[in-house]
Design a protein around this nucleic acid. Structure first.
Lengths: 402, 402
DNA sequence: TCATTTAATTTAACCCTTAAAAAATTACAT
DNA sequence: ATGTAATTTTTTAAGGGTTAAATTAAATGA
């Protein structure tokens, strides 16, 4: 993190080992010192020393020793189970969409304690207003705690350091700068991250996607892609997310995109694009009202009834997505894809078009057979992924901080 | 590297500090213990201890103390300058192209000692033949030494671990597997790397590109891209290089690419593509003889004379490159570009088309003003970059190895 | 020749880890 | 009851690495 010396001092060795031990608790939950010693590959003595410190500092606690103490072989001194102290520190993980803010409070164990959600048009607010609005929302939680870190998923380009939004379709120029203000008035760390990247992070903890290489395509207000490669989140030059939505799908006079250019994948596959096409509206203009999740559900419903403009709109979305994936696969090698968000509910209707378009534009292989799956709720995954980022930050602070 | 523990032992601290100190010598050349102490931010005592070990092990040596000892303030005990021992170990850095192998011998100081080059059609050889051919070429060096590592730049996709060529247009299926054999018969480490990635690595040491974010576009037999982001080489999922050449430039029935698909950027911007177009040959077939660097020089010469098929071929190459860059910039954010290789000599003739095409297809900005530069010799940079990779490997071995 | 100055080495203290010994805590057999 | 075996946790002693401070080395100049 900081531009300080790398490990070369015994002091740093201790910090490294603190982190090792904390990570084992994070990964495995309740464990005894002996188990941690084996898991972390550290001597029993070290584990005793470090856990004594961690106990004193409140990072971990002794569990209630119920009769049901697994793995403890009946003979001998029983193991004392330890675990992360849920009350050590708190994370607020949230999701900002064009018309709502959702915040959830997570304890240090990673359990969700409380959730609040507010409808609000973010584009109309400046940075200070957004920051103050978010702070006020905390009052809505069941419990009153001062979170140590906010991690907020936002649509758009965010800087890799999590400190800056470079571009977002749902925020005004000034609105993009809410993070610094929020940090000041809340006296907490604030991290902003791309929503699709957070979804991918959440899914990466999922057994189904835990093998490590996959992409999460978020189909809602815009089209996002969060990428995991060999178990590591992929980060671009500056921006956290690879902008699948703004690959040029159609040459020349294509449909109008929210980014003001023509022909982007998003201009064919996002909520507003699908709605525009299904309703026979002018592809060179943006819809004059926000497209809601009910609108999209209705179109998907219509499309399931049979041929018609709704069905065709979804087909076209599939073609755009397939094209974008082909470009991505050319640059990153092919990876399985999880579709998330409202549009993803029509995956079965798009599947064929996506594959056709993908195979048409992808090089190197004659026939690709990519595994497509879908996840229903985007919001949950954005918050989940954000909470993971927050907890990781807390763990690092606990080990290396100050 | 190995799946062993991370740093948590005093032993590892020593290794870290060894590496720190070696790196300072690598970076700054001749330095006294006192200077290294400041540069590496380690105590004088540690530097004394470590450098005593390094001297014994032959990694560094005492310099001839010429009168001209800079920085030594005239009073007091004079500083003893130390430096990396050029004879400690040796790197063979090389470049494999479709019709030649070039190898250069570098000493541990990074100085090039000797070079050999042979014309040979690599596609006709199997892995064992290539490995044995390379080993035989070492006899051609002015001096006889056993290199510790070979680093070979190759066109195509290489695995990030440097141990495998996944796909290469210049090698047969079996030919791609020469690395393992070469390692056996030479008893040395062998690393294969993408040629464009090596060029980028070489340029990254160049003051002009040292700010850290840039792309190196290699225009020759194929089209390659080596990317540096914030001073770090960018690596994709498996492959080292982001395959700019095989982005789909033209839909449907585009020109035939060597990868057997149609419409790739390479099918419009590579040597053979430019030649094919300039000579009015069938765009749906590959030329029936290898296109030489003289052929390309001639076309560029013709194009400079004025309008005609040569000029138009180069324009088309520019459009393809511009399109490819637009896609790249969309995914990675825009970066300055260095053009390298035979085709790059026509940069001035292509500049306008590249920019036009780029701006037409790039999103987010109304007008991009990217810095384009060109470097003349690709081969030198491939070898240079490869030698850097080799030296870094040696440094790590010296610090952490065994 | 000697004081002054700067570089390099040595010394002593400190921190962290580990292996081994010791202590703690429980089950079980007699 | 009580002793023994089993198992976990803590304590201890040794070993290795670092640093600040003291010491030694090597050169200049009066």
């Amino acid at each position: 993190m900081s531009k300080t010396k790398e490990v070369y001092l015994s002091d740093d060795v201790r910090k490294q080992n603190r982190f090792r031990i904390i990570s084992q608790f994070r990964l495995h939950g309740k464990k005894s010192r002996t188990e941690i010693s084996k898991l972390a590959d550290l001597s029993a003595g070290t584990v005793t020393n470090v856990s004594t410190m961690l106990l004193e500092e409140g990072m971990i606690r002794v569990c209630d020793q119920d009769a049901s103490n697994p793995s403890s072989s009946s003979h001998g001194r029983p193991r004392v189970q330890l675990e992360l102290n849920p009350n050590y520190k708190f994370v607020v993980a949230g999701s900002l969409t064009f018309n709502s803010i959702s915040l959830s409070l997570f304890d240090y164990l990673g359990d969700k304690i409380s959730t609040v959600q507010e409808k609000v048009m973010l584009e109309t607010m400046d940075g200070d207003e957004i920051a103050e609005f978010i702070l006020l929302m905390l009052k809505g939680f069941d419990v009153e705690v001062a979170p140590s870190i906010f991690v907020l998923g936002v649509q758009g380009l965010t800087k890799n350091n999590g400190k800056e939004i470079l571009w977002s379709p749902i925020l005004s120029e000034s609105g993009m700068k809410f993070a610094e203000r929020l940090s000041q008035i809340s006296n907490a760390e604030v991290t902003v991250a791309n929503d699709s990247a957070m979804i991918a992070r959440s899914l990466s903890k999922d057994k189904a996607y835990a093998d490590g290489t996959f992409g999460a395509v978020l189909m809602s207000y815009g089209i996002g892609l969060g990428l995991y490669i060999d178990g590591q989140p992929f980060q671009g030059a500056k921006s956290s997310a690879s902008e699948l939505g703004h690959i040029s799908f159609k040459d020349g006079d294509g449909a109008l995109c929210r980014c003001k250019k023509h022909g982007c994948v998003e201009a064919y596959a996002s909520d507003y694009a699908i709605w525009r096409r299904a309703k026979g509206l002018d592809p060179h203009a943006l819809p004059d009202r926000p497209v809601t999740s009910e609108d999209i559900a209705q179109i998907i419903e219509d499309a399931r009834q049979g041929e018609g403009p709704a069905r065709e709109a979804i087909r076209e979305a599939g073609r755009a997505i397939g094209f974008g994936l082909a470009i991505m696969f050319g640059l990153f090698d092919a990876f399985p894809v999880v579709f998330v968000g409202r549009g993803a509910q029509a995956l079965d209707l798009m599947d064929e078009e996506i594959r056709k378009s993908l195979n048409e534009h992808f090089r190197f292989h004659d026939q690709l057979d990519i595994n497509f799956t879908k996840e229903s709720d985007a919001l949950i995954h954005v918050e989940n992924g954000s909470s993971i980022v927050g907890l990781e930050w807390l763990d690092q602070q606990a080990a290396f901080g100050a």
